[in-house]
């Protein structure tokens, strides 16, 4: 067992991925920031000074206090409070948690759909390919955000606001996952088309393996690196889509806020001068999306075989 882990570590240490990561300062910095944000989101219940979901802890008298460093600030609330008197630091930590959960969940769902449809379209070809890719084309031409807004609107109208609020987190994962699957399906299809011409696929066919086995056990592992690249960027896209939907009131309710609904609830108070309620979660959102995009750029440069100069 011990030797296995050591050799695995050695494989990582000697890989091209690790080598180029060590030499890229932007990638290292982005990774550290992302790791810090993910960890603080996971451990939000331990790190946050107060529990923003606990109504008993909220005092309306503390509402709209500015962050420390401005006049009228309270040391107990380092980033100030929102209009309901909730501690901004705690709501942002919990909000990042919700945003990340939806981002990862939506990408897992769209990866599942995208890989399945992409493999089927690429490997089977013919009519299956034509129909699936036509659907993907049409859906993409409508822009994923538009599809997500319309599906969200229909769900909200049919479930009612209250019911929708309770299951919003699953709804958002579903909406964004379904709206964005064509992106991954196209990538998978393109690499499957390149892979299926290779000898190992012919060999597997000759050996009499079933189509399913060839698709998932033989071809899929060889198409993973473009999936990783696009998956990374898609997490950032999903987080932005979630924020946009929540900002429009089609997402997380204010009682269980994500970064998007925090921005939305703060926006009503920006005219009265309380900029921190909306701009602090906004800043966190931008930093989160930016570091994921930068990591995605780096991954694409590293894994793109056309740029790979060995």
């Amino acid at each position: 067992m011990m030797t296995a882990t050591v050799s695995r570590w050695a494989r990582v240490r000697d890989s091209f991925l690790w080598y180029s990561f060590k030499r890229d300062k932007v990638a290292i910095a982005s990774f550290i920031v992302l790791l810090a944000m993910v960890l603080s989101a996971i451990f939000a219940p331990l790190l946050a000074p107060t529990d923003p979901y606990d109504l008993a802890l909220i005092d309306i008298m503390n509402s709209e206090l500015p962050p420390v460093g401005m006049s009228g600030a309270d040391g107990a609330f380092p980033l100030g409070t929102d209009a309901q008197g909730r501690d901004m630091l705690s709501t942002i930590l919990y909000g990042t948690r919700v945003s990340l959960m939806i981002g990862f969940g939506a990408v897992i769902l769209q990866a599942a759909l995208g890989i399945m449809f992409g493999l089927l379209a690429g490997y089977l070809g013919g009519r299956v390919d034509a129909i699936l890719m036509r659907i993907a084309d049409v859906q993409l031409s409508f822009s994923t955000l538009m599809v997500a807004i319309i599906v969200g609107a229909v769900f909200k109208a049919s479930f009612g606001s209250l019911m929708f609020g309770e299951i919003a987190i699953y709804m958002l994962i579903f909406i964004i996952g379904v709206a964005e699957w064509p992106q991954i399906a196209r990538t998978v299809r393109a690499s499957v088309l390149a892979e299926k011409k290779k000898e190992y696929v012919d060999a597997a066919k000759v050996m009499g393996f079933r189509t399913n086995r060839i698709m998932f056990r033989h071809i899929l592992p060889n198409t993973l690196s473009p999936i990783f690249v696009i998956g990374t960027v898609q997490i950032a896209n999903a987080i932005i889509s979630e924020a946009a939907l929540s900002f429009l009131g089609l997402g997380m309710p204010e009682t269980q806020p994500s970064l998007g609904s925090l921005i939305k609830s703060g926006f009503d108070y920006i005219q009265s001068g309380s900029w921190w309620i909306t701009l602090l979660p906004g800043l966190v959102l931008v930093v989160l999306v930016l570091v994921i995009n930068l990591l995605g750029d780096w991954l694409r440069d590293v894994m793109n075989p056309r740029l790979y100069k060995g």
Partner: peptide, 8 residues
């Protein structure tokens, strides 16, 4: 710019 949502 690409990382900043339009409403922000």
């Amino acid at each position: 710019g690409i990382s900043i949502p339009v409403f922000l």
